[in-house]
């Protein structure tokens, strides 16, 4: 081991050898300024009764207590969890399959990869609105095709019935987010040394065994990481639901972020709205701790 590289002597801290460390420190500092301070601001404000443009008074956990007593909030909490778990679960499974498929030597895979990547690359606003239009009644291609193939008799109100609307927003989230999993996992698969598979071949492992004992453990840390990040993003996702259903019908698809948006910016109850958004913190922090442990175990 090159001991000199790993020991930090204060006199030589600003050296080319320490450049990575210096960059890491600067980046951390940058993130602390831009995210740490703003996070503390958010936490602080959620313990007051601040309204937009108004004064604030410290009220401790008052906002949170009020919120827990509110049925709409509890409904949003429930659907936030359902939405995140189902979306991320489906994205993970589909993304893994997609990565495995794209890792095969198939003709034209450069173009295929680019095409499969597109849902992630399109601005959410347009793709989500297009989905809305496709699921709609007038000029709605989904109902039209299903009726042409005689799968349904009458147009279905994809966004009008609570149960269907829930599935619809999950579906659009999955459609948009699967490439994130697929392409990230693909990169991890590409990094698995082919020698490992050759050893597997020699030992007579079948495809499933190779997946179980080589592919999965080798790509696990990326899979965990992508799941974690996607989970945090999905817990805070706003645009898919806002543009598809705005929380309806009958409040069935409200999540923390949509409720928070209306409360804070339209009803001007800033502190209350921030508190709603803060409510995902315990979940995400727990998730963060659990998954980080897994990643660092390796």
């Amino acid at each position: 081991m090159a001991v000199t590289h790993n020991s930090l002597s204060k006199t030589k801290f600003f050296s080319w050898e320490n450049l990575p460390l210096i960059i890491l420190l600067l980046t951390t500092l940058y993130l602390i300024v831009f995210q740490g301070i703003t996070t503390i601001w958010s936490l602080g404000i959620s313990t007051t009764n601040k309204t937009i443009g108004g004064n604030s008074k410290f009220i401790g956990l008052g906002n949170y207590l009020k919120l827990f007593a509110n049925g709409t909030y509890r409904g949003a909490m429930w659907f936030t969890a359902v939405y995140a778990v189902f979306s991320v679960g489906l994205k993970l499974v589909l993304g893994f399959v997609m990565a495995l498929a794209l890792n095969k030597p198939i003709k034209g895979r450069a173009v295929i990869r680019a095409l499969l990547f597109l849902p992630w690359a399109l601005p959410t606003l347009t793709s989500v609105l297009s989905w809305r239009w496709m699921l709609g009644d007038v000029g709605g291609i989904v109902n039209h095709l299903l009726m042409t193939f005689k799968l349904i008799k009458a147009p279905v109100g994809w966004l009008g019935e609570p149960a269907l609307a829930k599935w619809s927003v999950v579906m659009v989230n999955v459609w948009r987010g699967t490439p994130f999993f697929g392409i990230s996992i693909l990169a991890a698969l590409q990094a698995i040394p082919s020698a490992l598979y050759e050893v597997g071949d020699i030992e007579g492992a079948n495809g499933l065994q190779k997946f179980r004992y080589i592919t999965l453990p080798q790509s696990m840390s990326v899979v965990l990481l992508v799941t974690l990040i996607s989970m945090i993003w999905t817990l805070g996702d706003f645009s898919v639901i806002w543009l598809m259903t705005r929380g309806g019908p009958a409040n069935s698809t409200h999540v923390f972020s949509t409720l928070s948006y209306i409360t804070a910016f339209q009803n001007l109850q800033l502190a209350r709205g921030v508190a709603i958004s803060m409510s995902i913190l315990p979940f995400s922090i727990l998730l963060l701790i659990v998954i980080m442990k897994q990643i660092f175990k390796k």
Partner: peptide, 21 residues
């Protein structure tokens, strides 16, 4: 791990302090 903390608060809220900054 501090890095990932940056994702914990959704941007729909964070834009206010960022704007102030």
């Amino acid at each position: 791990q501090l890095f990932l903390m940056a994702y914990l608060i959704p941007r729909t809220i964070l834009f206010i302090p960022i704007y102030l900054l």
